[in-house]
Design a protein around this nucleic acid. Structure first.
Length: 418
DNA sequence: TCTGGGGTCCTAGGACCC
DNA sequence: TCTGGGGTCCTAGGACCC
């Protein structure tokens, strides 16, 4: 049966949701992402703001200069999530195979729904109208035989449009488009392709696979497939709606001003570790690799990772690893712009031998679970490792309290292998 | 103009093993 | 004694996406 994928992309999503709650914003230059003088970037810009050259990922301060009259809005993630769920529920009526690819876009597999919803374009228009009437939000829809072409065509349909690429016409549709329209081709890849005179997808499709493979490796081969509109391998190839565990969980924080205050940095690392561990428990996952991220004043960024001798989902174990890495990586003087804590090498409970769990570890794990419950009832700030630790107590982190029996403390980290 | 935060995937080198 | 080669794990960094 002919595969039929629909990509749904909400138009100026954050801005549109803000307008629903504050209609006076309508048709004005609106920038979502923070205050005009804050550190940060534009998360979304209204069409009126875009006319001034403002676009997402641009520094807020730059946006303020390009468009001094813009209205800056912090943004309300809970509202965006709420509307994202509404959209998901609508899509779910059309097919059980739905997948939110991000907060404002989704794939829906309409293969075999013809008897229910009619031919592809009719189904798409019904979908479009349901979203519009039930959420008052606009979106654009792309329909095609692959996720890749569906995504490119929804972009082509913007704003508020529907576009169906008839099966067999994929290469013809893609050929005149700029190579940047291919998902995965960013600034760098574009520059290297320009070097060979490749500017349009058609130029790419006309090349020998050998040429691409020799200059771009495996990525080159995938690129050749994309130029023909194929979901060649990887995530694009997966079934729509297949639930997968996350591969990593991380949190990071950029300070409002660069800091060399050890206490401030380590308190932040503990807070971030708590957030990471909490999400590990929510997903019932354990991490074996903890990674620290540090960014300097000059934006240079380093990462330092360590692999634990057992996987964990405990605040204290994530925090002690992060702080140990930080103490090994930071010279104590260079101002820090950003710190991050990242948990990788995730495994589920089955991969985790609870039989071997020491009683003390189990008690700690149970304690953190009850903390999660308290936080759920009274709010995140109610209980915090970081906030309850004054610098005196924190000094003791060196010696022990974060480390469980049988494992090296932060200062002994280097000797662990012996 | 001074650059967020959450992810995924890929590459490359070194250690280590057979 | 002048050096092989594959596989896996680990770490660091980078491109890219929304």
């Amino acid at each position: 049966m002919q595969r039929l994928i629909c990509h749904v992309d909400m138009d100026a999503f954050f801005v549109s949701v803000e307008e629903l709650f504050n209609p006076s914003l309508k048709d004005k230059p609106v920038v979502v992402g923070g205050k005009a003088n804050q550190r940060g970037v534009v998360a979304a810009a209204s069409y009126a703001a875009r006319k001034f050259g403002v676009h997402s990922a641009m520094p807020l301060r730059t946006a303020a200069q390009l468009c001094p009259k813009a209205i800056f809005v912090e943004g309300a993630p809970h509202r965006y999530r709420e509307y994202s769920k509404k959209v998901f529920a609508i899509l779910n009526r059309f097919s059980p195979q739905v997948e939110m690819a991000s907060i404002d876009e989704a794939f829906i597999d309409l293969t075999g729904t013809e008897r229910l919803w009619g031919p592809p374009l009719r189904a798409a228009h019904a979908l479009h109208e349901s979203i519009q009437t039930e959420t008052s939000l606009r979106c654009s829809l792309g329909l095609a035989s692959s996720r890749l072409v569906a995504k490119v065509s929804s972009d082509h349909a913007k704003p508020n449009g529907v576009l169906f690429v008839i099966p067999g016409q994929e290469a013809r549709f893609l050929a005149p488009l700029n190579i940047r329209k291919i998902p995965g081709v960013g600034k760098k890849t574009e520059a290297s392709l320009h070097h060979f005179g490749i500017r349009r997808v058609g130029d790419l499709a006309a090349l020998e696979e050998d040429f691409l493979a020799s200059h771009f490796g495996r990525w080159g081969l995938a690129l050749a497939g994309k130029a023909r509109g194929e979901d060649a391998g990887g995530w694009f190839d997966s079934d729509v709606g297949a639930e997968e565990d996350p591969k990593s969980i991380s949190h990071e924080h950029t300070f409002s001003d660069d800091t060399a205050d050890r206490d401030r940095i380590e308190t932040t690392l503990m807070k971030l570790s708590e957030m990471v561990a909490k999400r590990l428990r929510e997903h019932r996952l354990y991490s074996r690799t903890i990674q620290l991220k540090l960014r300097d004043q000059d934006f240079s960024t380093i990462t330092r990772a360590c692999t634990l001798d057992h996987a964990t989902q405990l605040d204290s174990e994530v925090a002690s690893a992060a702080i140990r890495l930080f103490r090994g990586a930071w010279d104590g003087a260079t101002p820090v712009r950003l710190v991050g804590v990242h948990a990788g090498s995730l495994q589920n409970a089955e991969g985790q031998m609870n039989l071997l769990e020491e009683p003390q570890t189990r008690r700690l794990r149970e304690a953190f679970r009850s903390i999660d419950h308290i936080r759920a009832r009274f709010g995140d700030g109610f209980i915090s490792l970081a906030k309850t630790l004054d610098s005196n107590i924190r000094e003791k982190v060196h010696e022990n309290p974060f480390d469980l029996p049988g494992r090296a403390g932060p200062h002994k980290g280097e000797d662990e292998s012996q």
